[in-house]
Amino acid sequence: MRVIESLVPRRGLKVLVTAGANGIGLAIATAFHEAGAQVHVGDIDAEAASGLPAGVGFTQADIGDEAQVARLFEEAAGLGGLDVVVNNAGIAGPTAGIDEIDSNAWRQTIDINLNGQYYVAKHAAPALRESEGLLINMASVAGRLGFAFRTPYAASKWGVVGLTKSLACELGPSGVRVNAILPGIVRGPRIEKVIEERAAKRGIDFAEMERENLAKISMRKMVEPTDIAAMALFLAAPGGANISGQALSVCANVETL
């Protein structure tokens, strides 16, 4: 196989993407679909499913609820197996000092961002062992850096990196690869809300908070959802066949948060 051919996933891959109807998840689901994969998406937002490409399957599911995750996998079984599972669902969580965070908001962040990834991995493992497939867990640069006033989010994302590395060791002998993608500041409505909340906490305006954020990035720019999708496609391509147990930052080099 020529090197250039190794950069493209083979056609016909069977792919499941959680939180795949919006943002990064939608970019990933669309990219795999355009690459010739059969794609099924789970998302809590049923209305957003109307924006999915024609032919992409959909299940409404809250990833923080294991029963709904089980139903998602039952419906995705219509693909006839799974080669790639993208464990993408997550929430931003609260922005507050540790002594001000509501305990229910803390639990919700952990339930979705970390427990939800466990539920998906648990139900994905049998199918991925069968296909010698790929599990991609979505973490964050907050999974390698401290993040003041965002401790529930950072704690959950550090947990995702630990989950990823442990599963890579556990499932590797069965031919399954497990990696985490760590997006940086990704352009879109979600980061705008985060900047807005941090600006309010700091008592500064949105523009100043955005400038501060960009100043912490070596390349002084946000990344796009399609940048994350491109990494997911590469990991699923022949060229990524020996990449496992890695926490791969796609962030323009975020230096600090």
Rank of each mutant, 00 (worst) to 15 (best):
S131T: 12
L16E: 08
A207H: 13
I136H: 00
G81T: 11
P225Q: 10
C169D: 13
M219V: 13
Q117W: 00
L248Y: 03
A180T: 05
A229F: 03
V17I: 08
N242R: 14
S166G: 14
R202L: 15
G57S: 10
F32S: 05
I101C: 03
K14T: 10
G20A: 06
V141Y: 05
Q108E: 14
V39K: 05
A31F: 00
Q68M: 13
G12V: 11
T226E: 15
A76H: 12
T95Q: 11
G80Q: 11
C251F: 01
V186D: 02
Y153S: 09
A70Y: 02
S50T: 14
K216S: 14
G97M: 06
G203Q: 11
G133L: 03
D111L: 07
P189F: 09
R198F: 05
F149A: 11
A155W: 01
R198M: 13
K201F: 13
E170Y: 05
V223M: 00
V194S: 08
I243F: 10
K221L: 09
A29D: 04
G97W: 03
V186L: 07
G184V: 06
D65H: 14
A70S: 14
V141Q: 10
M138C: 02
R177L: 04
L114A: 03
M231N: 04
P53A: 13
I243C: 10
E192T: 14
A70H: 12
S140H: 07
G90Y: 04
A199G: 11
S131V: 02
I110W: 01
R202G: 06
I98Q: 05
V254F: 08
E100A: 15
G42Y: 06
R198S: 02
A29M: 08
N213H: 12
N88S: 10
P126M: 07
V176N: 01
E224C: 05
K221T: 15
A232T: 02
G240T: 02
D65A: 11
R144C: 08
R71M: 13
Q117L: 10
A155E: 02
I24Y: 06
I185M: 08
N242M: 15
E210D: 13
G57P: 09
